[in-house]
C-alpha cells in the first residue's frame, strides 16, 4: 500500500504517494530528480548520501522516505539555491582544492554544514571527527579539513565582511 507523504526539500513542498520500503535517497534521486545526493555503499558507511533532516545529518540510504513525512530536508542543491552563488562551505572546497572526483563532495559538505551548525568553531580534531562518517576514496582528506576550517572562519565573520570579500 502506498503512503501519502509531504516533504519540504530545500524549501519546496512536495506531496508524494510512495511505497513505504523506498528510501529517502531513492525518492530524492528518482522522484524529485535531486541527483546531487549520491548513493555509495547503501549501508551507512560511506556518507555519500548524507542529507540534513530537521537540522541533523543522516544517511538518506538508511532513511525510509515515509519516516521523514512532514520534515524539512536540506540537500546539496539547497546549499546554493540560486544555482549561482555558492555556500561559503562550497566556495572553500573549490578554493582549497578539496574536490577531486567529486562523488563524496555533497555528503562532505552536508556533514560540514551539520558540524558547523553544532560547533561553529571546531578544532582540526573536531572537524576530523565530524567527518568520520564520510569517506573520500581519492583520499583528499587534508584539503577537505582545511576547506571546512576556512569556511568556519568566514561564516563566523560579520555578514557584511563576507559580502565585501
Amino acid at each position: 500500500m502506498k503512503h501519502d507523504i509531504q516533504l519540504m526539500v530545500n524549501g519546496d513542498s512536495y506531496s508524494l504517494a510512495i511505497d513505504p520500503s523506498r528510501t529517502l535517497n531513492q525518492v530524492l534521486r528518482e522522484d524529485l530528480n535531486l541527483t546531487g545526493t549520491k548513493l555509495g555503499c547503501g549501508s551507512g558507511d560511506c556518507g555519500a548520501c548524507t542529507v540534513i533532516v530537521d537540522g541533523r545529518s543522516v544517511s538518506s540510504c538508511l532513511t525510509l522516505a515515509v519516516e521523514v513525512d512532514g520534515k524539512e530536508i536540506l540537500t546539496v542543491e539547497g546549499l546554493a539555491p540560486s544555482g549561482e552563488k555558492l555556500h561559503p562551505i562550497q566556495e572553500a572546497f573549490i578554493e582549497k582544492g578539496a574536490i577531486q572526483c567529486g562523488f563524496c563532495t555533497p555528503g562532505m559538505e552536508l556533514s560540514a554544514y551539520h558540524l558547523l551548525s553544532q560547533n561553529p568553531t571546531p578544532s582540526e580534531q573536531e572537524i576530523r571527527e565530524g567527518l568520520s562518517g564520510n569517506l573520500c576514496r581519492c583520499t583528499g582528506y587534508n584539503k577537505i579539513v582545511e576547506a571546512i576550517s576556512v569556511s568556519a572562519d568566514r561564516m563566523n565573520r560579520k555578514p557584511s565582511k563576507r559580502k565585501s570579500r
Partner: peptide, 9 residues
C-alpha cells in the same frame, strides 16, 4: 558507536 549520521538516526 558508528559515525555521526548513524548516531543521528
Amino acid at each position: 558507536t558508528a559515525n555521526v549520521q548513524i548516531r543521528n538516526m
